[in-house]
Amino acid sequence: MVLNKQITKQISALNRICRGPGAVKLPNDITGLKLQFKYQNSNGHMGAKKFWRETLPQIQFHNPAIPMAVIRTEAATVEENQTIPATLLVRYSNGEEKSLDIKEKHSSVILNEFIQLTKAQKVAEKDIPYLREFANMN
């Protein structure tokens, strides 16, 4: 049965949340993530924004127990605009914090470095829900 456009749009929106390169399972000793960057995209903060918008929902979907905060700061002056850092902070249960510099980096590069840092495992295909555009209606 062919579904109407409204439903196919929703299906692709749901698939975008649960499927993709960000479908990774983080180790148990990670207790939190913190992403910090500017409101302005200039000076290498676009990758961080794209990482937040496209990849972070996928990571959150497969790690529902880990709180993920996004803090964006407003750059008031030209100097601030150039100097505010973009970082991804990983918190561990023993109080340790590891930070990743994500300035001037593409969102896919950020994800690769994040996976290397945390040793996250890819989620098996069979564990990811997949919504098909052509459903078998009984």
Partner: peptide, 17 residues
């Protein structure tokens, strides 16, 4: 009877993400 149907915990997972 639609592909958009999920149980409440999974629905909340999608919403939180």
């Amino acid at each position: 009877n639609t592909p958009l149907y999920f149980d409440v915990p999974t629905a909340l997972r999608f919403i939180r993400a």
